[in-house]
Design a protein around this nucleic acid. Structure first.
Lengths: 217, 217
DNA sequence: TTGCTTTATGAACATTTGTTCATATTGAAA
DNA sequence: TTTCAATATGAACAAATGTTCATAAAGCAA
């Protein structure tokens, strides 16, 4: 009853299911889960509320499905395609790449909605909190601290606490992403924040890098 | 009907009103505003729901009152008692003071609840967003950037973009405060985050300070 | 105590909301 | 076209929720 039926293309059923999820995500991220009614979701799709129950057991299951999607969201896979050795050797370019990725994701509608859903539900939904902590936070911070540690060994950056550095690198990116999200909500200009993404990478790299001049020249 | 009646000490009325606000804040910050019912609040106080309507017009007014309290909350007054000239001259000590204040506030129950309420309502309540942006964010960042600018003129720190630096200083403090809040919710250990407050100040200061050795010694 | 204002109670209400279900409609395979 | 499973509709229900109000209790000044 729940699995895929169609052999190749999307069947009508799964297309509707995807539309429900998309609509629900938009509403949940705007009004909050509790304040969004089943009628709201159906209404936004031009359908009656009872129709949704052919695709989801209940309202909770819609949220659970969206939460499940969080784990495969782009923001949790910052380092997917990087080879550790290669990544560490790329130094500043690695950090700049992450900074850019954060910046771009801040302006991606799907990611923005997921981010807002995450922020609102994190404080009252233990599962969301767990996903945030393990997938979004811990995994990325640990991975980055590994890279930073390798950069220290390569004498690209100064020796210090890699985990602390990883946190110091992530925190502003997270914060700026939140700021963009808030500004966009009121249709305010985001340009001042946008530049902060790059300035952060620059400032951070200048703080940790080892100047080559005297030692090698 | 709404103003203060008692001549000196708290009258019974205003004591009850304060108790309602305290109870509501705890519940709102835990379950969210929408998911908290008037019966929940009354029940937690050992009173019937109709009693609350002698003190507040409706549920919304309770939230509005709490939101109003945000503007006088400790976290928005980081620099209250500082003399600008003196503050700038104190250099690292100023930053360390702010770092400590953030750290302490993360463990203050009242502030924690307000912070959680802020985080949850910010995305759907325009007034909360406005308070966050103007009082919590803009005002503090601007003030700090002024101090940083003065430090640059005093040649205590390297010359660069003060507003960017202020953001770079605040963002991790905000982030760590959020992390503490999340960890405490699951009764997890916060020790690793606690040390990050101090490490951040240290790392940040080392990144901006001008070394006195060569120029003055 | 008496009298009066403030606060609490119990019961009730109109809505809102999630959910169900019998029935109608649709879409595709035969 | 016929047939059958998948999906949509309309109506309805029970529970939850915000709110009101007449009445009772409590606090306090005289």
């Amino acid at each position: 009853m729940d699995g895929d039926k169609g052999t190749s293309a999307l069947s009508k059923g799964s297309k509707t299911k995807a539309k429900i999820l998309k609509t629900a995500l938009k509403l949940f991220s705007t009004k909050g889960y509790k304040a969004t009614t089943v009628r709201d979701i159906a209404g936004a799709m031009g359908v009656k509320q009872s129709a949704l129950y052919n695709h989801f057991k209940n309202k909770d299951e819609i949220l659970e499905t969206l939460i499940g999607d969080l784990t495969s969201s782009a923001i949790v896979h910052l380092f997917d395609d990087k080879d550790p050795q290669e990544a560490a050797r790329s130094g500043k370019a690695l950090l700049a790449g992450i900074g850019t990725k954060f910046k771009l994701l801040s302006f991606d509608g799907q990611n923005e909605a997921l981010f807002k859903l995450l922020m609102q539900e994190m404080f009252r939904n233990e599962r969301v909190r767990e996903i945030y902590n393990e997938h979004f936070y811990q995994e990325n911070v640990k991975k980055l601290s590994t890279y930073l540690f390798m950069m220290m060994q390569e004498e690209l950056i100064r020796s210090s606490d890699p985990l602390m550095l990883a946190n110091e690198f992530f925190a502003p990116l997270f914060f700026y992403q939140m700021q963009v999200s808030l500004l966009k909500q009121d249709k305010k200009s985001t340009s001042s924040v946008v530049s902060l993404f790059e300035k952060h990478v620059e400032f951070f790299w200048e703080s940790i890098r080892i100047e080559k001049k005297e030692s090698l020249f």
